[in-house]
């Protein structure tokens, strides 16, 4: 028998053992959480996957309800929702863009629920209509490479310096819900001057949040403008040589809304899931992943506990200006 054959057999053997153990685990699990419910809740979630996995398995253990989860960016989730319009599958959505949530709300697709936990939420995260449950939030800011000769950027304008020429990237608002909200709200407050200057300094639009962060981590770019905080901060805590700053002049703290669809056939389970998201246990898990818990009374930088200077946002106006500001942004950055 040749060497390859031996290697193959070993590999296949290892795979078979793995599959066996996996199958055994898999069949074991429902028996362990002995509360029979037979229900399956379908949750579409945007956001850090380790966190959503943790939340879901905690929820399954506590309630015995099985959860099917679809991970994607805000855009992917909304697109899936649209494609399934005639045969809705999702019960609960968790998005990374408040504007997208408000959009669904204005279309009348959301269920009203008087969740108990809402009282504990930070007032700026409360929805008077009881449809959007902002169980967590993330801020955007500046991620930069720590290297000799590169000034630490403290405000948006600092990225217009020559040290950052051709080295700044902005997460694509079409892939990233938080970036979309940021460029919209920023333009509402300050217009397009910043983006025009950035374009002159050679900035360009990158991919999703993780991709632009990756570009800075591997040194392809020197800074991300408008990337989400928790991803960069967890990379910093892992020891990557990058820094993150919350701009002095203010930034967007973007609530990440969870919501129940009216079309849901498992509303009871869905309500339980919302309650679970607002529970102390999940709120602590959120903090541990460097996101801002919805119940946090003060918005602080997880790196040094300084207060974040957050914009005040009226989300229903923001929903109306969205398309216009997005196309202005794309125009400024894609055309010379």
């Amino acid at each position: 028998m040749s060497k390859t054959a031996v290697t193959t057999l070993t590999l296949l053997g290892a795979l078979a053992i793995g599959a066996g153990i996996y199958a055994a685990n898999y069949q074991h699990r429902p028996a362990a959480s002995s509360k029979p419910s037979g229900q399956t809740l379908t949750v579409y979630t945007a956001g850090p996957k380790p966190l959503s996995d943790k939340i879901v398995s905690g929820f399954e253990d506590q309630t015995g309800i099985k959860v099917k989860i679809f991970d994607g960016t805000t855009g992917k989730i909304l697109s899936k929702l649209k494609a399934e319009n005639q045969n809705p599958q999702a019960d609960v959505l968790v998005l990374a863009s408040m504007a997208a949530g408000v959009d669904l709300q204005s279309q009348g697709k959301l269920l009203t629920y008087d969740a108990k936990g809402v009282a504990k939420l930070n007032p700026r995260f409360k929805d008077p209509n009881h449809q959007l449950f902002n169980y967590s939030a993330s801020a955007v800011g500046i991620t930069y490479r720590k290297q000799a000769g590169l000034p630490v950027p403290e405000d948006w304008d600092d990225l217009n310096q020559s040290a950052y020429r051709n080295a700044v990237t902005i997460p694509d608002p079409k892939s990233s819900g938080s970036s979309l909200d940021f460029i919209n709200v920023y333009q509402q407050k300050h217009g397009t001057t910043l983006f025009k200057k950035l374009k002159q300094n050679g900035a360009d639009i990158g991919g999703a949040n993780k991709e632009v962060l990756d570009a800075v981590v591997t040194g392809q770019k020197k800074a991300v403008l408008g990337g989400v905080d928790y991803m960069s901060i967890s990379a910093i805590k892992k020891g990557e040589k990058i820094g993150f700053s919350y701009p002095d002049s203010g930034t967007l703290v973007n609530p990440r809304p969870a919501m129940i669809l009216k079309s849901s056939e498992h509303q009871k389970a869905a309500k339980q899931f919302i309650d679970y998201l607002l529970s102390n246990k999940v709120q602590a898990q959120i903090k541990a992943k460097y996101l801002i818990p919805g119940t946090a009374q003060k918005l602080v930088n997880p790196l040094n506990n300084d207060t974040i200077n957050a914009y005040q946002v009226d989300w229903s106006t923001a929903n109306q200006t969205l398309t216009k500001n997005l196309s202005r942004f794309n125009q400024v950055l894609t055309h010379a």
Binding site: T73, G75, K82, K174, T323
Partner: peptide, 20 residues
């Protein structure tokens, strides 16, 4: 920044705002 037909389709279908 080199868009081709396939990527345009995927983007139109999976990024928000959608361009179905």
């Amino acid at each position: 920044h080199f868009d081709v037909l396939t990527t345009t389709i995927q983007r139109d279908l999976s990024q928000w705002p959608l361009a179905f």
